[in-house]
Design a protein around this nucleic acid. Structure first.
Lengths: 222, 222
DNA sequence: GTCAGGGCTATTGTTGAACAATCGATACGG
DNA sequence: CCGTATCGATTGTTCAACAATAGCCCTGAC
C-alpha cells in the first residue's frame, strides 16, 4: 500500500497514527473497556501492524490504553480510584501553579483565548469542542508554572480523565457550567486577587469531581 | 533466532528490552549525545529491529532518548535549562509531598530502607548503587503523596536527571554527601518536625542543583 | 583553495508475510 | 456438572525487502 506521498508530512507516519488514535480516544469514538483489535485498526488506518504496535506502546505509556499480554490492548476504563486520584493531582498541580504565577505570564493570554473559544463553541452547542477548550484552559494554568515536563504530564492526565467523560451521555451538563467558572477564575486572577482565584479554582475542581464521580457510579458499574 | 525459552518470563520481550536499555542509560553505559544505532543494538541485545524500535518509542516518551526523524535516536543530553527545570520540579513535588505526609505512611519504611541501603553501598564504595538508593529515597518521598501517576512521572524525571550524572567523573563527590542528608531528613521527619524536615530537604535539593550545574558547566560544554 | 552541486552509501521508515506462543471457547468424556 | 483436550483466533516476534532520507565524498567551476 502506498500512502506517504499525499502530503509532505514532517512527522513520521507512526506519530501521525499515534495522534490519530489519541484523538479518537479522547473524542469518545471508542468505549472504555473495549478491545482494540490490531487487525481491525490496521485496516481502518491503513498502516501495518508493526507501525500500529509502536503507536500502542506510546498510548499505553500515556495511560489511555491498557496492554494485557497476549490478550490485546483495551481502552482504559478509569475506576473510581483513578478519578479521585486524578482530581487530587489536579488540585495539587493547578492550584499551586496558579498561586505562584507571575501575573503577566504569557500563558494568561492562552487562558483568555481558551475562555473565549469555549463561549463560541457553547453557542454552537458543540460540547466536544467546549470540552477541548476547557482542557486548554487548565493546561494554560499549568503552563504558568513554566515546566514543559509538567505540562506534558498534565495534558496526559487530563486526557485520561477525559476517557471517563465518554461514560456520560449528557455532554452539555458535563461541560457547559464550567465555561462561566473558567471565566470567573480568569477575571479574578487578572484583577490581582490570586488567593480568591485559587479558592474559586479549588471549588471548581471539587464540584467537577463530584459530578464525574456521580456519573461514573450511575453508568460505569465495575 | 531462538531465545524466548531461556526463562519463563511473564513480561514480553519488548518490555525486557526497554528495561534493559533503560538500565544501561541510567548506569551511564552510554554517553549523552551518543547515537544509538539500531543495527548495533539489535545485535547486542539479540532482538529484531521492530522490537527495538518499540522500545525506543517508550524511552523517547520518557525523555531518556531523543528521536530525530531519519537520523536516529540519541542519548538525551540534558542542557542547563533542563537541569534547572528538573530541580524546580523536584522542589515542587517532593517538598509538598513531604509537608502533607501522614507520619506513619507505609512509604516511610521505604525511606528508611533506602537510607540503610545507601549506607551499605557507601561502605563498599559502590557509588552507582548509592545513587540508585538515593533515587529510591526520593521516590519514597513522592510516594507519600499516594499518587501512582505522580510516582511514575517522578521516577521518569529522576532518570532523566541521572543522565546528567553521566557527564561527571567523580561519582563519590556526587552521591556520598547525600547519604547523611537523607538520613537527617528522615530522622527529622520521624521526630514529628515536618516543617524542619521540609526545610532540610529544600536545602538539600538546592545544594545538589548547584553541584550538578557546576559539573555540567565544566564538563558538558553545549 | 574554496565552494556549489550531484550522486553514492549507510541508515532509518514502513511494509507484508511467516511462524511461534498464548488465550478463550468449544467439544468431549467421566 | 465438571475437568480436560483440542482448536481457532489473536498477539508476539522475526525476517527480508524496498522506499526515503541524511550525510559523505567526489567532481568541477571559479
Amino acid at each position: 500500500m502506498k500512502k506517504q506521498s499525499l502530503e509532505d508530512r514532517r512527522e513520521s507516519l507512526g506519530e501521525t497514527v499515534t495522534a490519530g488514535i489519541r484523538r479518537l480516544l479522547v473524542e469518545g469514538e471508542f468505549t472504555p473497556g473495549q478491545r482494540l483489535s490490531e487487525i481491525a485498526l490496521c485496516e481502518r488506518l491503513g498502516v501495518s501492524r508493526n507501525t500500529l504496535r509502536e503507536a500502542f506502546r506510546t498510548l499505553a505509556h500515556e495511560g489511555l490504553v491498557t496492554h494485557q499480554p497476549h490478550r490485546g490492548v483495551f481502552v482504559t476504563r478509569p475506576d473510581a480510584a483513578s478519578i479521585v486520584e486524578i482530581y487530587r493531582l489536579r488540585r495539587f498541580i493547578e492550584c499551586r501553579a496558579l498561586s505562584e504565577a507571575w501575573p503577566s505570564h504569557p500563558a494568561v493570554k492562552e487562558m483568555r483565548t481558551a475562555v473565549e473559544d469555549a463561549r463560541t463553541y457553547r453557542e454552537r452547542q458543540d460540547w466536544l469542542a467546549v470540552g477541548t477548550a476547557n482542557m486548554a484552559f487548565h493546561g494554560a494554568i499549568v503552563a504558568l508554572g513554566d515546566s514543559a515536563r509538567l505540562d506534558d504530564f498534565f495534558r496526559q492526565v487530563l486526557a485520561e480523565l477525559r476517557l471517563a467523560f465518554g461514560l456520560m451521555s449528557d455532554k452539555e451538563w458535563l461541560h457547559a457550567p464550567y465555561v462561566e467558572m473558567n471565566q470567573q477564575v480568569l477575571e479574578t486572577f487578572e484583577k490581582g486577587d490570586t488567593k480568591a482565584a485559587v479558592a474559586l479554582l479549588e471549588q471548581y475542581l471539587a464540584q467537577s469531581e463530584r459530578i464525574v464521580l456521580a456519573a461514573w457510579e450511575r453508568q460505569g458499574a465495575s
